[in-house]
Design a protein around this nucleic acid. Structure first.
Lengths: 200, 200, 200, 200
DNA sequence: CATGAATGAGGCTTCATTCAT
DNA sequence: GATGAATGAAGCCTCATTCAT
């Protein structure tokens, strides 16, 4: 959809990846405004001008990173739920996967947060896409009678909120997975909120 | 605790307030980095130098605003729960109050989000303080048997997460209160998650 | 018509003048693109940022200079014709004044030429205004029977062309007034072209 | 005389021509500084590096274009006068030819103007050569008694000025030939200025 | 003959902050 | 208490040119 300059050679593609990796670290450590394009290229080991061979602007590389992270997260979550037939088990697995993901991608997490003030559209897109996928999973489970019949959109946003705040508090701030008791307490809360009136 | 210059006259206090109000709007509309001190002073109707008579730096006025918003929000929430004896009613009232507050203070909401990348300490302090107050309210209710006996800290963060995301989605992005069905669905979820096993 | 930042103090006005003078020299010597804002401010003896207190951009100071030169030239020309009752005498005086002006303002001459590629509108405005004033002078003289009855607009542009090229050739390129023979030859040509069929 | 690399193959010559044509358009549309080498090569449909196979620098291609235009114009003018025995008729034909040429080569016109600020030498050479050819034509006619006996150099520059300004005003700015009345008025002026005292 | 990735200097502009009045 | 001119560092981006393939 976007018209980013596209390298045509393998060497170009490698440079592009180095830039993306360098930007992820710089943005993560110093924030979007604190990171300079020159620091990014220095870290990537290329000249300043090279940056603009691959990205039209500093904002564009951020957007790219946000989209990339969204795709990664959705993939991690869907992988976590593979082969599970009970939705509550999918939820539990998803929560754990989310925490591991947050811990492993603290930089990208911060990048998503930052995008809010750089290009609100990608930020919204990030959450909307996530919520959409989430809600449709919930709706399917409701159809099977595995969950209570509440509005799946609302449930999706609520659950994202819970996961987000717990991830922030532990993975991002304290650099560790939430302790087991926390996960247990949170999940008990969620489970009760989701399960059908008459347990299956 | 604060090292800020304190105006001694009423005129000074008025100028200070004008600056705070102007900063709130500029930060809210353009973001911390997008807002310039000169735009703030222009909006406040004072000269550029005047800014530094009241705030040591641009970051400081942000911190002040974040603290101010935290206090306002906590007050709004505590007022919303006054006179209610059942905790679930307090929760419900708190949720509604939070949504109204978010809608009425969109700028301040954004300012809090921004503070994350300017001075992470105030940002954490904001949520820690809120969570602390929230958790102790929940703990009191648990002691009275009005809620399930789960870790109140974890519940507090989870509930903040739900409220935050719903507020973001509706109040901040769509500039309106969440529709009644959404509030109902969310609250049903919460209520089930919180209520004691054997209803009191 | 334009919204240039306006200094409110005498000190500010002085700085603005220093910048204008420095820009005139830099543009004249190195051309618009060869001149850097930093060279201008260095020459003016102020910091780089000061430039933008007075001019929104490098292009704006060029525009200002072009307009200034237009006004100066028109004034010089009108002064040269003061008190002369015969139009051909006015023409002769104007031609000499133009040459002296070009010689004295070589920088500004080049600036006008440059403006063509920076903001064609000011450039056109410069010549249109000049031509308009010139043509109305010619028309008045025609009404008095002092000149032939040809389209004054066309005559004005033609005469500007003659003056311009002679000014370029001598004043700008050779840094001197055109030799007397040249002025005489040129003026004989013009005179014959302008004078009424039956001499008054 | 020229130090430019000379292509030896037909394919090379074709590439060179594509570059020249592309540069003409880019310089004409965006100006010398606004046009980038990469835009030129893009328009020519070749890789960036290819440019430097044919031209040592961006300035060189401009010079080439200026010289080319000079030759074209002189040729157009001389062709216009072919077979005419009266100099005033040659002049008239030349004026019309000049206007047609300007209209058909607006880009090249602008390129010549630009060269003034890139390499003044070619620019002067352009006009000196033109003026030289022009003056010698006038001198020949004077020897035949077809024109007044004024300094032919001066007449040449004056006439170039008239043509230039009328061309600028109509062909370049308004993208059309000067209206007939304008041509008539201008030519009447010129004719009177040139013709011998006692018509031959 | 041609490619296109890479370079790195350099330019314009913004902006938080200082300071003389 | 207030002003507003001045500062100068720093950032984003462009572009002519080079070079390995």
């Amino acid at each position: 959809m976007s018209e980013l300059p596209q390298p045509s050679t393998a060497r170009g593609e490698a440079t592009r990846q180095k830039l993306l990796a360098a930007a992820e670290e710089e943005f993560g450590e110093r924030g979007f405004h604190g990171a300079s394009v020159s620091a990014i290229t220095r870290r990537a080991g290329v000249a300043q001008g090279t940056f603009y061979l691959y990205f039209p602007s500093k904002e564009d590389i951020l957007r790219e990173l946000v989209r990339y992270m969204g795709a990664q997260l959705r993939e991690a979550l869907s992988r976590a739920g593979e082969g599970l037939s009970q939705r509550l088990e999918v939820e539990r697995a998803g929560f754990h996967a989310f925490m591991r993901f947050s811990l492993a991608h603290k930089n990208l997490y911060r990048i998503v947060m930052q995008s809010q003030f750089v290009d609100e559209a990608v930020y919204r897109e990030y959450y909307r896409t996530l919520a959409g996928a989430y809600a449709s999973g919930l709706a399917r489970a409701q159809a099977l009678g595995q969950l209570r019949g509440a509005d799946p959109e609302t449930l999706a946003w609520s659950l994202m909120g819970v996961a987000h705040f717990l991830g922030l508090r532990y993975a991002i701030w304290e650099d560790r997975l939430p302790p087991d008791e926390v996960m247990a307490a949170a999940f008990a809360f969620i489970e009760r909120g989701l399960e059908p009136q008459e347990p299956a």
